[in-house]
Every structure is written in C-alpha cells, then in structure tokens.
Design a protein around this nucleic acid. Structure first.
Lengths: 108, 108
DNA sequence: GACACTCATAACTATATGGTTATGAGAAAT
DNA sequence: ATTTCTCATAACCATATAGTTATGAGTGTC
C-alpha cells in the first residue's frame, strides 16, 4: 500500500501535468485543489483526475478538511524508482567516481 | 545529446515492453534485435519501434554490424532521473536514516 | 432553508500510443 | 544475379489517455 510497483510510478510520472503537480507538492508543500488548479494550465476536473492517479500510485495523500481537500506529496513512494535505477546502474561499468557523482547529486 | 530531459525518460520508461527491453540490455548486455525479439512477447517491428524510442531518449545505443543491429544500454542516461528524484526528496522531512536508507538502496 | 463554494464524477471528444501485417532496404550466401 | 536473412519503415487499427463541459455531492454561510 505504501509500496507500489515501478510500473504505476513511471506511468503516473510520465505525464508532464502530473509531474508538475507532484513537483509543486514536493517543493511548496501541502496544497488545496483550488490552489493547485491556479497555476496548472488545465481545468479543475483535470487536476482532480491527475491527483486521483497520483494518489492511486501512492505519490500523494489527501486530507479532507471542511469542503476542501488538501493534497501532500508522499516522497517516500519514490523509493521503488530509486531501487529500480539502482538495479539498472549496478551493471554499468561501476567506476567509483561515477557512483560518487551519483550520490553527490542525490545529496547535493 | 548524452543528456535528456526527465520528460523523455519518464515517457520512454513508462511502457512495460520498453522497460523490459531496457532491463534486458542492462542486465544481459548488448543484444541484437532478433535476440531481443525472442523473449519479448511482441513482433519484431514493435521491438524495433520501442528501441527507436529508447534510442531517442538516449537510453540505448545501436551499432550496425553486417546485417544485424546490436543495441546496448546507456545507463548513464538515467542520471537526470536520479537528479529529479533527488530534488524531490531533498524536501521531504530530511531525517538522516531516510537518506541513509536511500543511499544504501542505491549502493546495495 | 436557500444559496454559495469546493471538489469529484459523468459523459464526451480528440489525439496519442502500442500493437499488428505488409513491405522495403541493405548485407551475406549460394 | 538471385535468394535469404535481418532489421526498419509504412499503413493501418483498437484502445488508452488527457483534456473539455456539465453536473452532482458535501460543506459552510446567510
């Protein structure tokens, strides 16, 4: 439930609108649907549908408060993605500086 | 050219057939189209089309030798993906064990 | 209760996408 | 030169997808 297959994650994040929504939630924190709709270039129903897909992929959580719904990013849902890229990368020419480079990018 | 936007990467990897092809190339190394077609549950033209998309995303390289084409994974093309997940994760509640967990998964 | 607000769902449309079969182009073999 | 082999492209089809407008359900306000 807190863990999702890479497939759902890739599919969910493949769409630019969805990725933008997720990014906003990651960077700016919890947002209502209204706030997310403002700034997204698409209609409110479209936003809601995208949020539904992100939720189904485990990437966001929703919290109902009165008549508005607050969405927040569930960043740890990205773990299977990191796992997957790690599995693929293990088999490249595993030069140390490459790995270090990679980890530096992760850590910043 | 060796660097691609996350968008192309996510889109390319969103399809299960394409991801399977890329995984095989990552894990088993260079393969001809024929070898890749055997085992993929789809026709040779479908495989070729998928390989074309992977190539356009910078995820694979092709090498022509006689009448066959050898494809190989370009794993470092995954770097923007790792960057992106890193940027998203920087802003989670950056508890140390989480980060460590993440890096451990990367390193294995 | 009547009205307004916020979001989700329904119904629909246009396009993108992933698959197929048929065919073409280039290289090797006979 | 003809044939065979390997792969890529063309043409096509069915479905998935992302968007729209219209409407409904639930909650607060007057």
């Amino acid at each position: 439930m807190t863990d999702t297959s890479p497939d759902l994650l890739f599919r969910a994040l493949a769409d630019p609108s969805r990725r933008a929504l997720f990014e906003r939630l990651c960077l700016d924190g919890e947002q209502t649907v209204g706030a997310l709709t403002a700034g997204a270039g698409i209609s409110q129903p479209a936003v809601s549908k995208h949020l539904g897909i992100l939720k189904q992929a485990g990437l966001v959580l929703d919290r109902h408060e009165g008549r508005q719904t607050h969405y927040s990013a569930q960043q740890r849902a990205l773990a299977p993605l990191v796992d997957w890229t790690g599995r693929m990368n293990r088999f490249w020419e595993a030069r140390f500086d490459d790995l270090e480079d990679l980890l530096k990018r992760m850590d910043q």
